[in-house]
Amino acid sequence: MQPRRPVATPPGRLQDIRRSPQGSESMDFRTCYVAFETRAERPLTVAARMDVPAAADGAAPPRVPAVVICHGSDGVDARGRFHAQALQAAGFATLELDMWSARGTVRGAPGRPKTVPETLPDAFAALAFLTRQPEVDPARIAIMGFSWGGVVSVLSATRRYADAHAEPGTWFVAHAAFYPVLWSYNRAPGHELRDLTGAPVLIHAGGADAYDTPEVCEAFLAGLAPADRAHVELVVHPGATHAFDRDMPAKTIHDPYAHNGKGGAVRFEFDPDAARAARDRVVQVFGEAFASVGA
């Protein structure tokens, strides 16, 4: 089985792409709004948008790979759709979480949970939920996220959190993270990045991201153990800010985690070239990971 080719879109805003690149046939998707319970010490009910292939009349739905999508501190926004449409065009189901509604929090840094590990049960509950869906291949599920959700994606690649939260027999086969606050690993409590599961981890960072200095990006891979570094790919997009794939009006926010943990202002500005390149690489890496299962 060959990896699926990345989907290219013309310059400008994301087009509504819903066709599978497999030959000339299209794969129609249907949208479901779902909810499921986590296995946290205080279980929460997490809401999500799920897009899965629609079955033809009288036929069983096709079983396809799937991707869990985790939002940033601002909650669900344009980033999820930006990537979900490309993933679906590649033939992958998607499950975009709303981690904030389960906690009754407001959007933005002031209202989010105190630590990212508090939300890891959400991601692993999503994994378990997808394994039970008739349209999903339970052995081919990946995870991706933005900022806060990017940290969720990175930390879910550690054996520590996978062993603590995954249901037996479930696992993520690949991880993608966008600007996941690189300075925090092996520095912030709960952000220990070691003893990875061995699944590929793709990280996209912005060269002008105010959360991290350029030196942090340069030192990130060197700070990992060689056995773990072998599974991590870091792509730095020159001149790109935090949330460079957020196809919405630019804005500036304030976050105590910015500027290597010193706090301060952070610019969000859409970079269409970096966004498309990063999105295509995610589709490619996930396609390769899915193709390798059972190969």
Results as ranks from 00 to 15, higher is better:
residue 126 A to G: 13
residue 112 R to K: 12
residue 101 S to G: 07
residue 124 F to C: 08
residue 156 S to C: 11
residue 113 P to K: 01
residue 204 H to N: 09
residue 97 L to W: 00
residue 130 L to M: 15
residue 142 A to Q: 09
residue 155 L to E: 09
residue 144 M to Q: 15
residue 116 V to A: 03
residue 175 H to P: 07
residue 115 T to E: 15
residue 216 V to H: 02
residue 180 P to M: 04
residue 189 P to D: 09
residue 117 P to Q: 07
residue 217 C to F: 14
residue 110 P to W: 00
residue 205 A to P: 06
residue 165 H to V: 01
residue 100 W to A: 11
residue 177 A to L: 00
residue 97 L to A: 08
residue 112 R to I: 01
residue 172 F to C: 14
residue 131 T to D: 00
residue 153 S to W: 04
residue 176 A to F: 00
residue 109 A to Y: 05
residue 212 D to N: 13
residue 188 A to E: 14
residue 108 G to H: 07
residue 213 T to W: 02
residue 191 H to E: 10
residue 128 A to V: 01
residue 175 H to L: 04
residue 214 P to C: 10
residue 106 V to P: 01
residue 103 R to D: 03
residue 188 A to W: 07
residue 107 R to G: 10
residue 111 G to I: 06
residue 135 E to Y: 00
residue 147 S to K: 02
residue 221 L to P: 06
residue 200 P to H: 03
residue 98 D to L: 02
residue 129 F to V: 11
residue 176 A to C: 10
residue 103 R to Y: 00
residue 193 L to R: 11
residue 96 E to C: 03
residue 126 A to R: 00
residue 127 L to K: 04
residue 201 V to M: 04
residue 191 H to S: 13
residue 131 T to S: 10
residue 221 L to G: 05
residue 175 H to N: 12
residue 211 Y to P: 10
residue 220 F to Q: 05
residue 126 A to N: 01
residue 219 A to M: 08
residue 127 L to D: 08
residue 140 R to I: 12
residue 168 P to K: 14
residue 142 A to R: 10
residue 125 A to I: 07
residue 171 W to A: 13
residue 184 S to Y: 01
residue 192 E to R: 14
residue 204 H to I: 09
residue 213 T to K: 08
residue 200 P to F: 02
residue 196 L to F: 09
residue 211 Y to V: 12
residue 194 R to A: 13
residue 108 G to D: 08
residue 191 H to R: 06
residue 172 F to R: 10
residue 125 A to Y: 01
residue 205 A to C: 05
residue 172 F to S: 05
residue 98 D to C: 11
residue 111 G to M: 10
residue 173 V to I: 15
residue 197 T to P: 09
residue 160 R to L: 13
residue 165 H to G: 03
residue 174 A to C: 08
residue 100 W to M: 09
residue 108 G to V: 03
residue 165 H to M: 05
residue 137 D to Y: 00
residue 151 V to C: 12
residue 159 R to Q: 15
residue 109 A to E: 09
residue 211 Y to G: 07
residue 172 F to T: 09
residue 128 A to Y: 05
residue 100 W to E: 09
residue 96 E to V: 02
residue 169 G to W: 06
residue 136 V to M: 01
